[in-house]
């Protein structure tokens, strides 16, 4: 399950899991053994949408780490539901920035990543904004951030081939 909060009420995100496939040298007695290790990790999910509810499918995303804030640490594209998920490097503490852009609209979101063993917290969501109740708001993008803390070693699985 995904532990998080979503100000827009969009819960039930799929668990973000990092799947590590290891093909490490097999012990002599188990030639060609393969190991599949699945380890849930902390992750960030961001959804871009316009404030008429339309999701930003296919928006260009850029993630900036706090130790190099002018250069993208990661780039990608939102999925059909407007979501973009990534796992920040927990060794890089501080304020991470996520930028979304599509068709002349853009927004920034900021997420604090704490020290080792600490939870991540979405400090705020920030988006293009216009006057309250303006008709133009329909065309303005909003973004929301949820964070997940899976904890340490909640799940570990290893399969050994015969």
């Amino acid at each position: 399950m995904w532990f998080g909060s979503d100000s827009a009420g969009r819960c039930g995100l799929a668990l973000l899991a990092l799947v590590l496939v290891s093909l490490a040298p097999a012990p002599p007695v188990l030639a060609h053994a393969a190991f599949l290790e699945l380890r849930p990790v902390e992750g960030i999910a961001v959804q871009g949408r316009y404030d008429d509810g339309t999701v930003m499918a296919g928006a260009q995303m850029a993630v900036f780490a706090p130790n190099d804030p002018a250069r993208p640490w990661l780039t990608g594209v939102t999925d059909d539901e407007g979501w973009f998920r990534f796992v920040p490097d927990p060794a890089i503490e501080g304020r991470w920035t996520v930028q979304a852009r599509q068709a002349g609209h853009g927004a920034m979101a900021y997420v604090e990543v704490g020290g080792e063993g600490e939870a991540m917290a979405a400090v705020m969501l920030m988006a293009g904004g216009d006057e309250a109740f303006s008709p133009l708001q329909r065309g303005v993008m909003t973004a929301s951030v949820v964070w997940g803390l899976i904890g340490t070693a909640l799940f570990f699985q290893r399969r050994r081939a015969a």
């Binding site: 853009g106 293009g128 904004g129 216009d130």
Partner: peptide
Amino acid sequence: RGMHIGHAGEGHCDV
């Protein structure tokens, strides 16, 4: 009035 001409790049602004 009511039109949102001013931006910071693609980022919208409060008016």
